[in-house]
Design a protein around this nucleic acid. Sequence first.
DNA 1: GTGGTCTAGACCACC
DNA 2: GTGGTCTAGACCACA
Lengths: 122, 122, 122, 122
Amino acid sequence: MGWNFNDGSPIYLQLCAVIKGKIASGEYAPGSKLQPVRDLALEAGVNPNTVQRAYAELERDGLVNAERTSGRFVTADAEKIKQLRGALSSGFIGEMFKQLQGLGLTNEEIIAAVQNWGYSDK
Amino acid sequence: MGWNFNDGSPIYLQLCAVIKGKIASGEYAPGSKLQPVRDLALEAGVNPNTVQRAYAELERDGLVNAERTSGRFVTADAEKIKQLRGALSSGFIGEMFKQLQGLGLTNEEIIAAVQNWGYSDK
Amino acid sequence: MGWNFNDGSPIYLQLCAVIKGKIASGEYAPGSKLQPVRDLALEAGVNPNTVQRAYAELERDGLVNAERTSGRFVTADAEKIKQLRGALSSGFIGEMFKQLQGLGLTNEEIIAAVQNWGYSDK
Amino acid sequence: MGWNFNDGSPIYLQLCAVIKGKIASGEYAPGSKLQPVRDLALEAGVNPNTVQRAYAELERDGLVNAERTSGRFVTADAEKIKQLRGALSSGFIGEMFKQLQGLGLTNEEIIAAVQNWGYSDK
DNA sequence: GTGGTCTAGACCACC
DNA sequence: GTGGTCTAGACCACA
């Protein structure tokens, strides 16, 4: 897997974002165990402290729970995950609206274009 | 204007993208003069050759025309600009679909979410 | 091989033209590997960037494909090469017509002269 | 008029070629007076000796005659001019055949292509 | 070792 | 002063 961090924002936030995506999509199943800090740090080529910080962030959001002796686990709370999905979706949709509004399209035009795309295209 | 280049992709392509956006949105009006290569290079803090390359790319796309001694100008061809808007819109929309499909949403759910977002507005 | 650049037009375009000729004639077979940028630069006595630019031009035309780590290859698309042959032929023929029309010959006279030349052979 | 000399061959030969073209096409009418050496040298931005040499070459070919006191004149011999036209035409046609043969076309294919071009195209 | 990008700085043609 | 081209040399990603 390619862990690339090159967009200028803090690496720990980029890590968070990627992990959130995997949780939201189910790639990291509810209740499953996350990689140990050191493993992920090695795999991603970053400092373990950076991973620690990312995990802490996710913990604060209630998306992962730390079990002192056995590692960290994705929350089993389906509601939490559903909320996360909603938040991420909202973010992507909002970003799209922002861009298209910047091009001068109205919300109505945007919605029409999205419908068009979604029904006709792959 | 903030010219930030920090996302890992080639600078000349990022320059292209930004300028395309400005042309598509009308911020750079059809037929108007673009900044001279050296000026933009100075302003963006990059080498003039890099700007040259970006402009050359846009010229190949037919979005700008170089007039040997007087500078470069945004195309006055409204059709070209319309096509550009379409292409950019499509790109943003497609990106959103890709992200949301990655989260496990169907196209129908995506469209519904977009409608929701667009009508309640941000 | 003699790489001479002395006709006033940009070197990278002359490079393009020569290489196109070799591709069209089959001297560079479809799918075969092109010389690495640095090799050709050395052989032709020009800067590697100039060769790079020529190759990029050919790539944009779809005549060569770059494989990141293993080099550039002539397209294996026979149709592309056939089109190239057509374009080059057309160019040479058009040039001849232009010259002979400039001498005051009609198209009919030109065609007759060409037939004459072609059958008696040189 | 743009007198450009940048193809690597001796300038006096390039001058000859251009002047021959003008004589053959009738732009320089039979019997008409040629520009004085110094005028042409000035206009073309070359050394008068170079023009002198070009004129001498044309004189040797019998295409211009020097009248010691009044200047040089295009030959009035229609046959000479006709021959010149033939020679130039032959040269252009031969060049085209060479190029297209180099692309792998047979003489028959070349003739067919020329007919095609001459009848259909502009 | 391959292609790809970037910089720094030069020269040219044009007007 | 404008765009266009070229050189020299550097660094990066990839494998």
